[in-house]
Deep mutational scan, measured.
Amino acid sequence: HITLTNLITEETTHVVMKTDAEFVCERTLKYFLGIAGGKWVVSYFWVTQSIKERKMLNEHDFEVRGDVVNGRNHQGPKRARESQDRKIFRGLEICCYGPFTNMPTDQLEWMVQLCGASVVKELSSFTLGTGVHPIVVVQPDAWTEDNGFHAIGQMCEAPVVTREWVLDSVALYQCQELDTYLIPQIPHSHY
C-alpha cells in the first residue's frame, strides 16, 4: 500500500527527490524536513527503477548522498536516519524571529523540533538559566525595514544566528558551530 502526497507528515516514510546520477539534489523544504524527520530521502531513480523491475528495490542503493550547497557526498540523510536517538538540537531552545522567505515560519519551527529543539514563540519566553541553551534564528535578507535584527541582543541574552545555521546543520545532520553564522549585535551602550 503506497500513498503519494506532496505533504510531509509524521506518517511519511520516504521523501523522493529529483537528483543527478550521483544522487545529489537541490536543497528544498521537503529535503530538510525529510532529513530532520529521519525519513528515507531517496532519488526518484528509486521509483523509476522499482517500476521498471516491478519490485520495490532497496532504498540504500538510492539514498540521497549530498546536495548542491553542502557538498556532493556528506551523507546527511543517512546520518539522520541512523541517529534518531541522538537529535542534533537536543538541549537547545530556538526562537525563529522575524520574517522568513521561501519557507513558512511554522515549517522552520517544525524542522528544529524534529531535530530535538524546544521552540519558543517570543524572545521573552526563553527559560534562561535552566541548562537549556537559547538561540535566536533570523533571516536578515528578509527584513525590509531597518536592520532591527542587529538589536535583538538587547531583548534577550541569546546568540543570534542566520537561518543558514539551521539549514546547514539539518542538511549535514551535524549541529554546526555558531561562530560563522552569528549576527553582530549592537551593544547596549549605543542607545
Rank of each mutant, 00 (worst) to 15 (best):
E122Q: 12
Y173D: 06
F62I: 00
V137L: 06
V119G: 12
F149S: 14
Q139A: 12
M17R: 00
R65T: 07
N70V: 10
G98Q: 03
R81T: 01
N6H: 06
T101A: 14
T130R: 12
A158E: 04
I51C: 06
S189R: 09
Q84S: 14
I152P: 12
F23I: 08
S43K: 01
H14L: 05
E26S: 12
S83N: 02
Y97D: 04
E157P: 15
V41A: 01
S125A: 15
E145V: 14
Y173S: 04
F23S: 15
N6V: 06
V138A: 09
W110A: 06
F32L: 00
E63T: 10
V112F: 09
Q174D: 04
A21M: 09
T28Y: 03
M17F: 00
K52N: 11
Q185F: 05
F149L: 14
R163W: 06
Q176H: 00
D61M: 09
E145K: 14
T144P: 02
G38Y: 05
F62D: 01
L178K: 03
G38L: 08
F126V: 08
W143E: 06
Q185L: 09
M56T: 05
V166A: 07
H74T: 12
G34S: 09
A36P: 01
L114P: 03
P99H: 03
M103T: 10
E53T: 12
V170L: 04
M111V: 13
A151G: 14
D67V: 00
L182Q: 14
G98V: 02
E63R: 08
Q84I: 08
G153V: 13
F126L: 13
E22H: 15
P184R: 14
E82N: 08
H14Q: 01
Q139T: 08
K18S: 14
T180K: 05
M155Q: 14
I2E: 01
C25T: 06
L33K: 04
E177A: 10
N147T: 12
S189Y: 07
E122T: 08
G116L: 03
T101S: 13
E122R: 15
E93S: 15
Q75D: 05
G148W: 14
A171P: 11
N70Q: 02
A142P: 07
C156W: 07
V64Y: 01
S83G: 15
L4S: 04
